[in-house]
Design a protein around this nucleic acid. Structure first.
Length: 476
RNA sequence: GGCGACGUGGUGAAGUGGCUUAACACGGAGGUCUGCAAAACCUCUAUUCAGCGGUUCGAAUCCGCUCGUCGCCUCCA
């Protein structure tokens, strides 16, 4: 029997908000539609990946085991065109952009998925799935060797997207004569080989997989015919996920996915961020401009996943300031020394924050409310630091608690131990402390400027001088 | 044309029937502390939740209509 967790999520298919009850106890299986590696992934794409990252981190924080699979689409029309245009082999193009994707993901603190399957490495599974669909009468072959899924054979088609198949506005931009189909709404499972295109010689003929089939084949290969959560951007609801459900359930006769999670679009200048619209921002370019990766991450995760999120220079700057507030507190807690008896009260504040944080995230990943809980604690701790109403041990416990919550958020910077400082910085800090002891303000200020140039911000407090790495510039 | 989501302060945004004359963050104004600076803290910054009607003892929260914005129906995270 599935064991129900405290975590609730809204399923796109049913529209219901339900408790997560993993099919296998203590093992949540998640599949996410990942990038098509024909070019750089933009930050809108990353929003949909980071919302899953947040989910995965939270499930693990809650003690659940998670298997997270994210596909990499490495064969499709755009890749073929892109490679041809660049005059390079397809593998070279996809390798380059897969690596770039992984670098960007790492910079953003995205948890590495447990499996990153590639379509080209799953041709046998794709072929087997298509064979089953043909056997069961859900797919048919055309004269030029392509194979299509017959939508009329699947009555539930359209349920996820809440679309009536009869009302689909088909054919507007479909190259109707590219592949002959019985019904224009039928979608390709397998595309017959064409000159100049990559193809595989298989039992179902010479050709390459269609787009939707790879996700069915790879999710089932790595997670089984039924699994817990499938994610993507709202733009994938139709046709991609609709088609996945049809072909998967038609082939296995089993329910494909327990819970569908879809992330709303990132908006820039009031419209969906999309390459075709030309309003995109890329991770590497933002970082080159001096945007902090953590600020970018914060900006992308700090709004509920089902709400459209406005992305702008202002949102990045606000995110940067919020993160600086967190880092400043961590540094202050780390430097804090006060010889008083441990108080029970900070423990209460910490526990209250943790409760608020968990209750919020349990509620369909209400990240805004969870962050409010964190910042309530931040204010309380700052108050106590000002009032010297913490013991050294209390400060240590508060620091640990914040870093523990950050296992989910991934936006804080743990204060670096002094021994990790380069010698020149450590020397400057020592000289400045000495100058201050001697009340030599001129030397003290000069040393502060020098440290600033090395990226170290120094502040003077009752605990002596306190340093932290300078906040990365939000804009160059 | 069909389907859906959303509309809360200067900005982002939580709250979906009474605890809220509305959390939290960013920004702004004033103050405290400080050699200076920075940080932090304190006070202020929406009698109001797109508009209009209705239901209710009571609504930002439920219902209806209107207006507006965005998305999907086509490659797309």
């Amino acid at each position: 029997m599935p064991v129900s967790t405290a975590i609730t999520l809204q399923d796109t298919l049913s529209g219901e908000i339900r408790r997560l009850a993993p099919l296998e106890p203590d093992q949540v299986r998640i599949y996410s539609c990942g990038p098509t590696v024909y070019g750089p992934v933009h930050v809108g794409n990353f929003r949909s990946f980071l919302f899953v990252d947040l989910l995965v981190r939270y499930l693990r924080y809650r003690g659940l085991r998670v298997k997270w699979v994210m596909n990499v689409t490495d064969v499709d029309d755009k890749i073929i065109r892109g490679a041809a245009a660049a005059g390079v082999p397809i593998e070279e193009l996809t390798e380059r952009w897969t690596n770039r994707f992984l670098e960007d993901a790492e910079a953003l603190g995205m948890t590495r998925p447990d499996v990153l399957p590639r379509a080209t490495e799953h041709i046998p599974q794709i072929v087997a799935l298509i064979e089953t669909l043909i056997e069961r009468g859900h797919a048919y072959r055309t004269d030029e060797g392509s194979i299509f899924f017959r939508i009329s054979s699947w009555p539930a088609y359209g349920k996820l997207a809440r679309l009536d198949p009869a009302n689909l506005r088909v054919g507007e931009r479909v190259e109707a004569d590219e592949y002959a189909k019985d019904d224009v709404r039928d979608f390709a499972l397998w595309k017959g080989a064409k000159p100049g295109e990559p193809s595989w010689s298989t039992s179902i003929g010479e050709g390459r997989p269609g787009w939707h089939i790879e996700c069915s084949a790879m999710s089932m290969a790595h997670l089984g015919p039924s699994f817990d959560i499938h994610t993507g951007g709202v733009d994938l609801i139709f046709p991609h996920h609709e088609d996945e459900i049809a072909q998967s359930e038609a082939a296995t006769g089993q329910p494909f996915v327990q819970t569908w999670l879809h992330c709303a679009h990132l908006q820039m200048d009031g419209r969906k961020m999309a390459k075709s619209a030309g309003n995109i921002a890329r991770v590497a370019e933002l970082l080159e401009r001096g945007v902090s990766a953590r600020a970018l991450r914060y900006a992308l995760i700090s709004v509920h996943y089902r709400m459209a999120l406005a992305f702008s220079d202002e949102s990045l700057a606000a995110a940067g300031s919020a993160i600086e507030r967190l880092d400043t507190l961590l540094a202050a807690l780390s430097a804090y020394r006060q010889d008083v008896v441990d108080e029970a009260t900070p423990g209460g504040a910490i526990e209250a924050a943790r409760r608020a944080f968990e209750e919020a995230l349990d509620d369909d990943l209400n990240i805004s409310a969870a962050l409010a809980g964190v910042f309530d604690l931040v204010r309380e701790l700052n108050r106590r630091i000002d009032a010297r109403a913490l013991s050294t041990a209390d400060a240590r416990a508060a620091l640990d608690a914040l870093l523990d919550l950050d296992r989910v958020l991934g936006v804080m910077t743990p204060p670096a131990p002094s021994e990790e400082l380069p010698d020149d910085v450590a020397g400057l800090l020592e000289r400045r402390a000495a100058a201050r002891a001697a009340r030599d303000w001129e030397a003290s200020d000069r040393l502060r400027d020098e440290l600033a140039k090395l990226g170290i911000a120094v502040e003077d407090t009752r605990d002596g001088q306190r340093w932290r790495r300078s906040p990365e510039a939000i804009r160059a």
